[in-house]
Amino acid sequence: MIPAAFDYVRATSLDDALARLAAGGGSAKAIAGGQSLLPLMKLRLARPETLVDIGRLAELKGVRRLGDGRVSIGGLTTYDEMLRDMTLHRYGLLADALPNIGDVQVRNRGTIGGATAHADPASDMPAILLALDAEVVVRSVRGERAIPIAGFFQGAFASALEPDELITELRLPGGREDLGSAYRAIEQPASGYSIAGVAAIIGARSGDRWGFCSVAITGVGEHPYRATAVESAILGGASFEAAAAHACDGVTVASDIHADREYRAHVATVQVRRALEAAAARLA
């Protein structure tokens, strides 16, 4: 219930935060809303020596449209703020997912940057970012880099983020009128995390073929992933049901007391089909 002792610094600016993270040399952790980190610290599963509080860096908050039509979500934007942002409501999959991520209290504190950095293998937002082909903008004293989401998640609670880096924003491609999207999940009832959560975007239909399909899955593999086999099947003309059968191709499916491999793989296919159907329905 009570974390192990640590030192606390409150960053006064982004540069200050980055300097402190760099000085921490891997034993410092950034804390924003704390909804992922503090539960681990309370169980003493995480024991940072220094916490750098970035929660007040106003420049990292909020949703804005970029000049190139993309949408930027500041790393410190909470789920609740995203839920209230009409720009984001245009993304069907966000509209589906946001009201069901965590609970009200978690959404009031939890940030998209924090959730992304935490890289929980069953978290919903990573699947959405993957499906959207988002870009993770990170900064450190060494400079800024934009990491394509496709390579960001590397394992359970492991990502391409270096210990001295902060996620400053997530950039989403601008909404396309010819695409529809949806999110469908079956949740582990105790934790609320997904046993299988599926973000799907589909559209650009031409004749009897889909010209665009993006499907990402969380809760199933070691980390959230793009279901490229599903996407290829759809683009190749397969039915949703037939394509969904490829949901777990090439993935080592997780198993726990709530869902074994067989069941988890099965509901992944069900949710892929349902997400695709819902995404297509939005298009119509």
């Binding site: 804390i31 539960p39 509080d53 609740d80 209290q105 978690v106």
Partner: peptide
């Protein structure tokens, strides 16, 4: 409630 919004006070540091 913290600045008007509900939070779990076990998952907020006092310093925050």
């Amino acid at each position: 409630t913290l600045d008007g919004k509900s939070v779990k006070s076990c998952t907020v540091l006092a310093v925050q």
